[in-house]
Design a protein around this nucleic acid. Structure first.
Length: 871
RNA sequence: GGGCGCUUAGCUCAGUUGGUUAGAGCGUCUGGUUUACACCCAGAAGGUCAUAGGUUCGACUCCUAUAGCGCCCACCA
């Protein structure tokens, strides 16, 4: 065994040995995938790991469940083309991108992307494995796998037949660069300063940042109660305007909901084809909806002289024209607003009307209510999605994210699911002249052309919990694993993914997809900044693993972090846990060495006070760890184990084991428990220690892995931990007295102990006290000792004297004691005041009052002793 | 505009339904080749828990307001 834990060496060895790639002997690669292993995962993993990786996804974007959101670049989409942002090729639709894109051969793009996906898969698999994730690799799935694609089509067809999917001309978020729609939650906002134009429009002045959309504006909306415009309502005007005719017939319409008297001039025109709000308004009033801008962001012929021009250029030129026409009142150059942009390429979004497929979230359909328990026979997707969380069937951790979830379900609009990108599941709809066919497979006969659009990635991702288990077949897995117990993911993906999974599962299976959602925060750099490529502040997990080991990286991500809160990650932190890993390694080496020297003494039997102490402590830590993990306080569990391993086991029990009461059986027992408990946190080093322990006993059997060991449960054995605690405290106090009085560590001192109750205990452990406190002559008395010129202290009823002839500074010692007396007196006064308060005694629970009384008694006894020592 | 979160030792963070003389790691200081470990050991210093009120016998913890930082959603005439 090496003296320092080399994570690199062990890792490579372990990956094969530990069966992290769970392979079944005698089966080919393809058969491996279909092997069903119904061995329930060990308890600890049920709660710690569940996640799905979409690789490059059907979206060209990785939404792995890793908290490494900030460095998505390294998780999947590294250096590759963004699938989304490439136009489909070989398509004749006029929605396609212009001729420039045809210069890129379709085959070439497709080839590149296949490679890209393969590379991403490799990268992610590699990273997940290197992180030590304990997945059932036999069940790995990719959203483009055949059976998953089948599920996608199946859901589409079912929804279509239930009338939940429809095709319609609607206003959508459009990216002119990607040449595709975006769903509402794929739109991002950036703050920008742009000119804001005030334009004369007949009798009113309108304000806009986008004059180029207004060629066909012919309705003025005012508030019905607005005194300024009351007279105008219902009237029509010929307004000098920017269109090619030079004027337009405008009508004044009152709408109490749409118009705001306080805002600007209180009057506005509307652009139905390029504004969500205006589109709804136009539908409400039956106004004409006339497109101004095409899908490439170019002006349509309606713009006259500006036709074919880019939106941006048009705006500039148009402003000049308006000046010339004399209808430009003024320009505010300091207008700051939120510009909506494409999350993929940051191109400004152009809302426009186009024919798309939508999921109707409000239409009711028949449901099987046996699991959903809505109390209804039919419900809408929106209602089901909301109900699953509202009813408590799904628990979100931490709880506060429910609010965001409901905010989102409440404002849910029909979901535009068609995308004009080529990388995705094709919409399972075929056309032949006027005929339309919707089915899971292409219809019989010639002349059918499949819809060229693809589905929003979240449509297929939303099926993840059951499409991966063979649905729509009634498979054993589906029965066994669904709903999943815990989904673990980042909070930023709650609405994208989590909500869609709830929606899809409640629809398709009439059941929830999972019982609990554990949300982690995002990882930030040391300064709290989001990790990003442009800042170059990302941390490559593989780099950190190379340097400090995967275990250290895992620990640094688990400890000191609470659900839903962002976490800073930086080298020093990881380094700290590397030290922990190494400490564990060295302690194990020491124990294994003892076991090798005492091959026949491995029976677990507590003999010494220290044995009882450590076993009691172990029992306690098992119980607390279990409780913490059950309640998703993962950080706390990690801290408990860290503390127990280092401070109790290493600093005390191992040190005591170097004395005359070494007990190999207990050492082995405690170490074994420690590594089982720590295995979920630091799988590699613990598995390696386990293997070394077993090979020390000549039983190196690869099938006998630590990961298979049951997680410890507390025993009912009673262990006295008090006794050794006294010994430990005595040693500490002696050390403290030495240090206070500047006694060199190498120098041995004489110590006298006096106690009525604990002389036996002290005698039993005299050797340890002598060794660990560096004592020359240790005397233990029952009768009172009075000693001149000695530093003194006490523990329980044990009085400690360290004679310091000529060494102790009487003044200093006096000052120290006086300070402590003062401190104690203050404390006692506080306690007395509290206990003297009738209200406190009356209202506080008995246990609290008793506790305070005990504290007081204790403090008073201490004060007594302190005084007796100064006499 | 609506919502949410954070503010605790020099730094990074814990603190479970209100009852500890408020904790950890790192860093700092003092000392150390004690035969597993200097990626270590021993000892120590360091906080009026952002501010101001309130509830309570009792507040880091609950309520209200204020300030600073951050996030999400909405809007954009």
């Amino acid at each position: 065994m090496e003296s320092s834990y080399d994570s690199k060496k062990v890792r490579r060895r372990d990956l094969q040995k530990m069966g992290r790639i769970r392979s079944i002997p005698g089966r080919s690669e393809s058969e491996q995938k279909t092997v069903h292993d119904f061995n329930a995962p060990a308890k600890r993993y049920r709660n710690l790991a569940f996640g799905a990786c979409d690789y490059a996804g059907d979206s060209g974007r990785a939404h792995s469940s890793s908290p490494y959101e900030g460095i998505r670049g390294t998780l999947g989409a590294r250096n590759g083309p963004c699938g989304h942002c490439h136009p489909k090729q070989g398509r004749k639709s006029d929605r396609r991108r212009g001729p420039e894109s045809t210069t890129i051969g379709a085959r070439r793009i497709f080839g590149t992307c296949k490679e890209f996906v393969a590379e991403s898969q490799d990268t992610i698999r590699n990273q997940v494995r290197k992180m030590g994730s304990s997945c059932d690799w036999s069940r790995e799935r990719y959203t483009f796998d055949d059976d998953l694609s089948k599920a996608v089509n199946e859901v589409f067809v079912r929804m279509y037949n239930d009338g939940l999917i429809y095709r319609g001309h609607r206003i959508v978020n459009w990216c002119t660069r990607c040449n595709s729609t975006l769903s509402d939650d794929e739109v991002e906002y950036v703050e920008r300063q742009d000119p804001f134009y005030y334009i004369k429009y007949g009798p009113v002045t309108i304000g806009t940042a986008r004059p180029e959309t207004k060629f066909a504006d012919k309705v003025i909306i005012v508030h019905p109660d607005d005194e300024r415009y009351k007279e105008l309502i219902g009237k029509e005007f010929d307004v000098p305007w920017i269109n090619s005719e030079g004027s337009i017939k405008a009508k004044v319409v009152a709408d109490a909901d749409a118009a705001n008297m306080e805002m600007g001039s209180g009057a506005m025109t509307i652009t139905p084809a390029h504004s969500f709000v205006d589109f709804e308004l136009a539908k409400k009033h039956g106004f004409e909806i006339k497109p101004i801008i095409d899908t490439n962001g170019k002006m349509l012929p309606i713009a006259g002289e500006f036709a074919g021009m880019d939106v941006k250029d048009c705006r500039k030129k148009l402003a000049e024209k308006m000046q010339q026409m004399g209808i430009m009142e003024r320009i505010d150059e300091n207008y700051v607003h939120n510009l909506s942009v494409c999350y993929r390429c940051n191109t400004p979004i152009e809302p426009l009307v186009s024919e798309q497929w939508f999921v109707d979230v409000n239409k009711r359909f028949k449901i099987n209510d046996s699991k959903l328990k809505t109390g209804k026979s039919e419900a809408s997707l929106k209602e089901l999605t909301e109900h699953a969380v509202q009813s408590g069937s799904i628990e979100i951790i931490p709880d506060r994210f429910k609010k965001g979830y409901f905010n989102w379900t409440e404002n849910l609009r029909d979901w535009c699911i068609s995308r004009q990108i080529w990388w995705g599941h094709r919409i399972p709809v075929w056309y032949k002249n006027e005929e339309i066919y919707v089915g899971t497979e292409a219809p019989e006969g010639d002349g059918w052309i499949q819809d060229e659009d693809t589905l929003d990635t979240w449509f297929s991702s939303g099926l993840w919990t059951f499409s991966t288990l063979g649905w729509p077949e009634k498979t054993q897995e589906l029965d066994y694993f669904h709903p999943t117990s815990v989904l673990e993911t980042g909070y930023d993906i709650l609405t994208f993914w989590v909500l869609r999974m709830v929606m899809m599962s409640t629809y398709s299976l009439n059941d929830i997809p999972f019982e609990k959602v554990y949300l982690h925060g995002l990882i930030r750099d040391k300064e709290g900044r989001k990790m990003s490529k442009s800042l170059g502040n990302g941390i490559d997990p593989i780099d950190m693993i190379e340097q400090f080991g995967a275990d250290a990286l895992r620990m640094s991500m688990l400890i000191g972090n609470t659900p839903g809160n962002d976490m800073r990650l930086y080298e020093e932190k990881i380094k700290g846990y590397r030290n922990f890993t190494n400490k564990l390694w060295n302690a194990s080496r020491f124990v294994i060495g003892i076991l090798e020297n005492n091959p026949n003494e491995g029976v677990m039997e507590a003999k010494s006070d220290a044995d009882h102490w450590i076993l009691g402590k172990l029992n306690d830590v098992i119980q607390k760890t279990d409780d913490a993990l059950e309640n998703f306080r993962i950080s706390e569990a990690g801290e408990l184990l860290y503390d127990f391993m280092w401070n109790d086991f290493c600093d005390w029990y191992l040190e005591l084991s170097k004395g005359d009461k070494q007990n190999p059986g207990v050492l082995k027992h405690v170490l074994t428990n420690i590594i089982v408990l720590l295995h979920p946190f630091t799988p590699f080093v613990t598995e390696q220690i386990w293997s070394e322990m077993n090979s020390a006993e000549g039983a190196n059997d690869h099938s006998h892995l630590l990961i298979r060991e049951p997680y410890p449960t507390p025993t009912n054995d009673h262990h006295n931990t008090e006794s050794t605690q006294i010994i430990i405290d005595v040693i500490r106090k002696i050390r403290h007295l030495r240090s206070e009085n500047k006694i060199e560590p190498a120098k041995k001192v004489d110590v006298a102990l006096q106690s009525e109750k604990h002389t036996d205990l002290l005698e039993r452990n005299a050797e340890d006290i002598r060794r660990l406190a560096r004592v020359e002559n240790l005397t233990i008395e029952t009768k009172k000792i009075s000693m001149e010129n000695a530093a003194s202290d006490w523990v329980s009823d044990v009085e400690i004297f360290v004679p310091l002839d000529g060494l102790v500074d009487p003044e200093k010692e006096k000052a120290r004691v006086e300070k402590e007396v003062q401190n104690l007196q203050q404390y006692i006064a506080g306690l007395k005041a509290k206990l003297g308060n009738a209200q406190f005694v009356a209202n506080a629970p008995e246990t609290v009052v008793a506790g305070e009384k005990a504290k007081l008694a204790d403090a008073e006894a201490k004060l007594e002793k302190l005084k007796s020592h100064t006499d």
